[in-house]
């Protein structure tokens, strides 16, 4: 399988990139790592006239702590998150989720930004960002804007980004006494999730101050389980409270039956994973700083 013909540009600056997109954004595809785009080009599901390779842009890769936020550059590779030892205490859900994405070789090249922009309902980063209430920073010729994770994912493979925009970074709020967990059911390494659940909690004493829950592969996009999140706010993480949140999250899921299993099966795995995730996250938040 081979891509259909296309033109190719590899801008060396962000300014050049957004300028190209201003002119030809409608017929162009941005390429970061290419780990989702190239397979689509090979299948000829995607036949853009132009590929704009942003892979060489400087200063867009890496994770850093700034102003109470974690800034994840759009070109940060999955492996950079996976192997970042600081994150294991600072924001453990990030390396945990990264670990289960695709396979080691794809993690060496695929990017966090590319993943969220691809907006695959089976993608992992979207749910994580929803659980973390991250902000997405987009740049175009006309300037920069910030999009809330909850507004970013609009449907299967559809985001709030305009064709002339490039995602430059993801900002993740950092709070004390907070931690998360990512549970993923996959059939083998390299498989997308049958179901996965991202959970993040912020503790206030023995109570949950705030909870974030993102769901993978159980809807036409990554879902935020708002009712479940709300049900936990201000509550102690008792078995009952956790079970209730798990029930609400399962109810919020919109799974479809396919070769991976029935809708009931997937819904129940959401329940199981919300329970497991909350328990792990609470323990981590308590154990951590």
């Amino acid at each position: 399988m081979f891509p259909a013909a296309f033109d190719y540009r590899a801008p060396s600056s962000l300014a050049e990139a957004v300028d190209i997109l201003r002119q030809r954004g409608e017929e162009a595809k941005v390429m970061a790592g290419g780990q989702s785009l190239i397979p689509l080009l090979k299948l000829r599901f995607s036949q853009p006239a132009l590929v704009v390779d942003i892979g060489r842009l400087p200063n867009l890769a890496g994770v850093e702590r700034k102003d109470g936020h974690l800034r994840v550059g759009a070109l940060t590779r999955h492996v950079q998150v996976e192997s970042n030892t600081d994150l294991r205490t600072l924001c453990p859900i990030l390396p945990e989720a990264a670990h289960w994405i695709a396979d080691p070789l794809i993690r060496n090249q695929g990017t966090v930004g590319g993943s969220v922009c691809h907006a695959d309902p089976q993608g992992d980063w979207g749910s994580v960002m929803l659980a973390l209430d991250a902000d997405f920073v987009a740049r175009s010729e006309s300037g920069e804007r910030t999009i809330k994770a909850a507004d970013f994912f609009q449907g299967p493979f559809t985001t709030a980004l305009r064709p002339d925009e490039v995602l430059t970074e993801i900002r993740i709020p950092l709070a004390a006494h907070s931690a998360g967990a990512y549970n993923k059911l996959e059939r083998k390494v390299g498989d997308f999730a049958t179901v996965a659940v991202a959970v993040q909690v912020e503790m206030n004493g023995d109570k949950i101050a705030k909870a974030g829950i993102g769901l993978t592969s159980v809807g036409d996009r990554n879902l935020k389980a708002r009712d479940a999140e709300k049900s936990l706010a201000g509550k102690q993480p008792t078995d009952e409270a956790i079970a209730e949140a798990a029930r609400l999250a399962a109810a919020a899921a919109e799974p479809k039956a396919d070769v991976r299993g029935s809708a009931e099966f997937k819904r129940d795995i959401v329940r199981v994973f919300v329970q497991r995730g909350l328990k792990t996250a609470v323990a981590r938040a308590r154990g951590g700083q």
């Binding site: 590929v51 070789l105 060496n108 090249q109």
Partner: peptide, 19 residues
């Protein structure tokens, strides 16, 4: 199709030569 790109293993079927 694995090759090393600057020492890192990647899938050469999922990279463009120009890239």
């Amino acid at each position: 199709c694995t090759v090393l790109v600057d020492g890192t293993p990647m899938k050469s079927c999922t990279l463009l030569a120009v890239q």
